[in-house]
Nucleic acid binder design. Structure first.
Lengths: 218, 218
DNA sequence: AGACCCGGATTGTTGAACAATCCGGGTCTG
DNA sequence: CAGACCCGGATTGTTCAACAATCCGGGTCT
């Protein structure tokens, strides 16, 4: 089921289980609100209930999972407030990194690669590839800050975004309409026109948030 | 030793242990690099080794603690790169929240309270109070973003800062020289002169980082 | 129909057990 | 004497079985 390692030799089992669960949640294999039953999971993954709980503790600390006392652990299911928080984070982090970060040669190459990925996904109409490219782009923007911590924060934020999508009825084509916007954004950044890029970025974030909230609530 | 709860009734033990350890580390009771031995701690806190390990998993996910396979868990001890990362985070987060956040009446009140705390600590010469007021100030700045997630990120970042101080030989009076700066910063924010405030903030962060790195070991 | 209750299932936590690994110290050798 | 080697105790990693506390679903009684 997992293409990576089968069994860790002797000293990572808890972390390994956490990684497996993280992947399953990211992939939508475990949808928001789904219960993670101890006995079932420990049997399937062939780990003890204690080790599994160790993984739960880590995932709960990352807010990927919610623990309800005496009820169990559930995949986090973001509500409207959570979505607003996600976009507030992005509205602060991304323009800050873009405006005040450093755009090294390496990062420019990454941006050019992302540009190619977006146009490729546009032509092939591959929604998953488009979603992937989109995340890669916004990760790259935050990476301009040069801070591993902020990159981690962004990764977790994007993971929460994936949770939102997986919780929706029709998870399709939410990124496609923004492909054009993203391309212009990349070009502005590569051209060194940071102020305009930040403006475009904010516009994109506002629109995406509005549409998501619209599509979800009332 | 902990003035709060003695024993949790029945359903939070792991989280409770994590909280106790978090407090001890923040207070400097457990210094960076210190080993958290399982048997000793489980006996002292009167929890099983398994429950203790659950707390370890949570703390490791928060990067408060470092796990070395087959060696044990140790209080994280930030190096120069970690310090640079902390300041890079702050250089992004704080000006962003300050410039683009919302300054509600509540937050203005909090700032006025902080101002009083700083002047009070200045007069009494209480270094601990000054350090507390300093953290409160920078927490309040990030709180302007309105994002609970970013506030949590800031809290963890400041926790890492405390680790740096606790790892130093002479942890005294590092905040005192910045009291004046902080007061001016608060006044600029309260006056609505955000651009100038952001500029002052950046100056403070640069100076503090430089001094810390200097003081440590170029 | 709705309140009540009960027994099975699940969670929370513990203690003991064992393999794997590390650590400190003693011994051997050159 | 220094360094390589080795060994036994201590520590970590992980599992298992057990138990109390709690929840849940379903049947019963009014």
């Amino acid at each position: 089921m997992n293409p990576v390692t089968d069994t860790a030799v002797h000293a990572h089992t808890g972390a390994w289980v956490a990684q497996v669960l993280r992947r399953r949640i990211s992939a939508g294999d475990l949808r928001p609100g789904a219960k993670l039953a101890e006995q079932a999971l420990s049997e399937e993954l062939e780990v003890s209930r204690n080790t599994l709980r160790e993984a739960f503790a880590a995932l709960a600390a990352e807010s990927i999972v919610q623990r309800v006392p005496n009820r169990g652990v559930f995949v986090a299911s973001p509500d409207a407030d959570a979505i607003r928080d996600v976009y507030q984070v992005r509205r602060m982090l991304e323009p800050a990194a873009l405006l005040w970060g450093e755009l090294t040669e390496e990062r420019q190459d990454e941006l050019r690669g992302i540009r190619a990925a977006i146009t490729g996904a546009l032509e092939s109409g591959d929604a998953d590839a488009m979603a992937g490219a989109n995340q890669r782009l916004h990760d790259a923007i935050v990476a301009m800050s040069g801070s591993p911590t902020l990159s981690t924060v962004m990764d977790r934020t994007l993971a929460r975004m994936r949770l939102v999508f997986h919780g929706m009825a029709n998870p399709s084509g939410f990124h496609a309409p923004y492909a054009e916007r993203n391309l212009r954004l990349v070009d502005l950044v590569l051209a060194g026109r940071r102020e305009e890029a930040a403006q475009a970025l904010r516009g994109y974030l506002d629109a995406a948030e509005r549409e998501l909230l619209e599509h979800l609530g009332h």
